[in-house]
Simulated scan of single mutants.
Amino acid sequence: MGALRTVDQLTVTFLVDNCIEWYRPCVSLDAVCRCAVITYSWHMSRMTKLPPGFTLELRLHLSEDHKPPIDPLTGVPFVDLENYCCGAHGFSALIETRVDGEEPHLTLFDTGPDSRSIIRNVEALQVPVHRIERIVLSHWHADHSGGMLALLRYRSRSSTSDTPRCVADVHPDQPLARGIAPLDKVIARLPADPTFEEIEAAGGLLETHSEGHAVANDTVWVSGEIPRVTSFETGLPGAVRWINGEGGSKWIKEEDIMDERYAAIDVAGKGLVLFSACSHAGIVNVVKDAVSKLSRPIYMVIGGLHLAGADFTDRIPPTVNFLANQLRPAPTYVLPMHCSGFAAKIALESVLGEGCVPAGVGIKVDVQGNREEEQTVFPPSIA
């Protein structure tokens, strides 16, 4: 596995996220009531405005490729809500990387929280599951690993005998159990992650990696351990891990979640597109590591920023300041998803404007590279 290669095209399809953003209301209000409706409709239209290259789920379903059901009464396509995507507390992104003159590669980054949402959504979006070469698991939390076994089994049923097995790329340090312990009292454990044995029994080809490595013919970088260098990003408060040791079985504090990894793709003429599923390491630490390791500017930041809730309120201002003012050049787009939280989204939108994109499940993103513009890509710096 070599160094990260630059790609000519990146396509991302969000298969699992907490939010759904598939409808753009009309701002023509001649036939509707005025007053509050005007304000609401304008606000919703503004918030769902997407940049070039972003496609809402509704448009995907109504395209000829998806063959939407036609209403026999009116002759127009149905909005077939029974078979649209559903939201779920988790994250999964299908990453397609393409270098001109070569076959594209499909990599799945995380699998959502359960066996139902991932399957419903891949069917709704008509994903060619048999072409997925590798599942990269960001970290051992069930809202990211919960759909892995169902996806692998579904892929096996969708494949022929000569289809290569799907690689399951995971961190080797799998916990026995993880729990939630606010105020040092364990109130619950998270659902079990799939074991190594279950992954292989479901058709996966297990690979464990603790170091950074390139996959998908070196078009996707999967990080190793993320260095913790900021003073304000201090992990996940109340996180605990179950261990069996000489002193017996017990819960221990584990707020750093050191098995977490991010993924990066380098798009020609633009820079890095980063996927950070939960940012337990802190998104600033993630960005700093990517800049240090890959020496490329950050074009887009995607995924959970884990800034939701009272425990993370103080982290929002320095995070926003870093992304908007200290990182140079600043990211063109930030897509705060999953566990980012409403307050963080509002704070990012206030400084980035339309550079803060309200993405959600079902949205497709096409990033087109341009090798002729490579000379205009400035090296990154951090103030």
Rank of each mutant, 00 (worst) to 15 (best):
P77T: 01
P25R: 02
V167L: 05
G282R: 09
A124L: 02
H144G: 07
F91M: 06
E211R: 13
E211F: 08
S340F: 09
S159D: 07
E373A: 11
A239Q: 07
T111D: 01
M47V: 11
L60S: 05
K49I: 08
A264Q: 03
L307W: 06
D256W: 09
Y84H: 10
F91P: 00
A150K: 06
M1N: 01
G75R: 01
A181E: 08
E21P: 00
Q9S: 12
F91G: 12
T234W: 00
P317C: 07
R165Y: 05
H171L: 05
Y154A: 15
L106M: 09
A347C: 13
I252N: 01
E374P: 01
R165P: 09
S156K: 15
A142F: 08
S231G: 12
T376M: 04
L151H: 04
H43Y: 11
A202F: 10
G75P: 01
L125S: 02
G303L: 06
S292M: 12
M44Q: 15
A188M: 14
K250S: 14
N18M: 13
D65Q: 12
A168F: 15
F14Q: 15
R157S: 13
N217R: 15
A88D: 11
P379E: 13
T230M: 14
R328A: 10
T234K: 09
V16P: 02
G247S: 10
A177T: 03
V167R: 00
F109I: 13
G271H: 02
G112D: 09
V301R: 00
G309M: 07
C35R: 10
I298V: 15
L236R: 06
H66R: 01
P172F: 14
T332A: 11
V129Y: 10
A268E: 09
R315K: 12
E64Y: 08
F14K: 14
P182N: 02
L108T: 05
F232E: 08
G341E: 01
F109H: 15
P175K: 03
R241P: 01
P194E: 13
